[in-house]
Every structure is written in C-alpha cells, then in structure tokens.
C-alpha cells in the first residue's frame, strides 16, 4: 500500500505504463502544417493536459487520438493496439457539448450504449446511474435547451462515462461554462480521476486549469505544433482540493509555464 502511494506521489515517467502512445504524428490541412512529428506518452490512470495557445493544434491532436481525423503520418496506439478509427476504448467530451437537441437527457446519455446495441431498459438504467453521478438526478426527462451550459456539459460527461471507455478525451470541456461552475467541475474532475481508474486526456488553454487538474502537462507550441515541455506536478496533488491553489509548487509551475508561453502570445 505505502509503495503504491509513493508511486503516485513521486511518479517516475519511465516506470509508468502508457495507455496511449502518440508516435511521430504530423498533420497537414492542405498547406497548413498543424502538427509536425509530435510524440507523447499518456500514463495509464492519470490525467494529462495538452496546454497551448489557441490554434496550436490541440483539438487536431485529440481528434487524431479519437480516430476522428487521419494523421498525415505517424501512428497512435491505445493499449498497444494501433488506432484506425473511433473505438469503444475511447470516449470524447466535446467543447460545444454536441448534445442532440431533439432528445432528452437520458437518451443523450444513453446514445453511446444505443449505438452498441444495448437494450433500452438496460441502457436507461446505466444512463440513470451516470446522470446521478454527475449530479443531474431529476433532469432525466429534460431537453438540452432547458439546461444551463454547465449542466449540458455534465450530460456530455455522463454520456462519455456511460460507455465505460478506458480513455476519456476532453476538448476544452469547461471553456463554455461560467467561472464558478468551472471550479466545481475541476474539483469533480480530480475526484473522477482518482476513483474511475481511467486515462484522461484533457485539452485546455488555461494555465491554472492545467496545473490544477493534471498529473502531467504537455506544453504545445504553435506553427507547426510540437511538444515544448512536459511538466509533472508532484507534491500538491494529495493535499486536498482546497489547498492546491495556494501550494508553492502550484504557483511556481503556473509562473514557469507562463514564462514559456508569454513570447508566443501577441
């Protein structure tokens, strides 16, 4: 037990098994070179943030990992298997929620299961469980337009959790919700990472958010995008959600990242 705790508190990247490997990925949109020879490992059971300024290719990389986009060259492995398209081992949380406006919450949450042919009653039971888990109990029959932005993203999160994929891909999931909701989300996300034993890949352009929620932060720099630096916050993760933001290491890392990025912000 103490050994495991130690491993979590002072992770050694080499000792951690990768759930997702990105190898020499390049992606061109016509003449636009979005990614060039990008390689990155995502340790199992941890949350890795992709952090970088707007337009640096974070969404592109995430969609390539999801199998929604073909890389121009290079390959992705999830659990040792090469990615050729979307698969049940990965679930996506969209920046704009991507909910079906004509379907109520329970159908939206059950959509992934519906696509897998899970029978209606079983599907709804599972969906209800995850709706409760994200704190939306009582809203099963509501339609997306009746919910606030934060609640809609909880629906998107429940939908991704419901299919029980090992890897969760989140594209700036909290960027469209207000600041208070966002903080609550970030705390909940930490709990999720701890309890769910899933690998999270989390895109954000907020430095504070990345440092707050991540086990590992990959800083991407633009044009064409590459990994500039990998940072692994180590000491404040287990000090409780309330103490992270005033931990000296937290503050140091935020400053350090800002120093790296400031020259790329015009």
């Amino acid at each position: 037990m103490s050994q495991i705790e130690k491993l979590i508190m002072q992770p050694d990247p080499a000792a951690l098994e990768s759930a997702v490997s990105v190898r020499h990925i390049s992606k061109n949109y016509g003449p636009v070179e979005a990614l060039r020879d990008l390689s990155l490992e995502f340790p199992r059971g941890q949350l890795t943030s992709l952090l970088g300024p707007s337009g640096c290719g974070k969404t592109t990389l995430l969609k390539i990992i999801a199998g929604l986009l073909e890389p121009t060259s290079g390959e992705i492995e999830v659990n040792g298997r090469k990615v050729t398209g979307p698969g049940p081992d990965r679930a996506f949380v969209f920046q704009d929620f991507a909910l079906m406006p004509w379907a109520n919450v329970i159908r939206n949450v059950g959509f992934g299961l519906e696509m897998r042919g899970v029978p209606t009653s079983e599907r709804e039971a599972i969906a209800e469980r995850y709706i409760r888990q994200v704190g939306l109990a009582g809203f099963e029959k509501s339609y997306p337009h009746e919910l606030s932005g934060g609640m809609r993203q909880r629906v998107g999160l429940a939908r991704a959790l419901a299919v029980d994929a090992e890897v969760l891909l989140m594209d700036e999931p909290f960027s469209a919700v207000d600041e208070q909701t966002r903080r609550k989300f970030q705390e909940d996300l930490l709990g999720l990472v701890q309890n769910e034993n899933k690998t999270f890949i989390f895109v954000t352009h907020s430095i504070e958010e990345a440092v707050y929620v991540s086990d590992q932060i990959a800083i991407l720099l633009p044009r064409p995008s590459r990994v500039h630096e990998i940072i692994r916050p180590s000491s404040f993760r287990n000090k409780g959600v309330d103490n992270i933001r005033r931990d000296p290491e937290y503050l140091d890392i935020v400053d350090q990242i800002w120093a790296s990025l400031r020259s790329y912000v015009e």
Binding site: R90, F92, G112, M115
Partner: peptide
C-alpha cells in the same frame, strides 16, 4: 447540421445507417 454532432455520432461508433 452541427459538425460536432456528426463527430459525436462517429466517435460513439454509429454506423452510417444509424
């Protein structure tokens, strides 16, 4: 049609018919 809705369907494994 919202492009991310199409991507959503695809990412959850929807067949073309679905």
């Amino acid at each position: 049609i919202n492009k991310s809705l199409v991507e959503m369907a695809r990412s959850f494994g929807a067949s073309p018919l679905n």
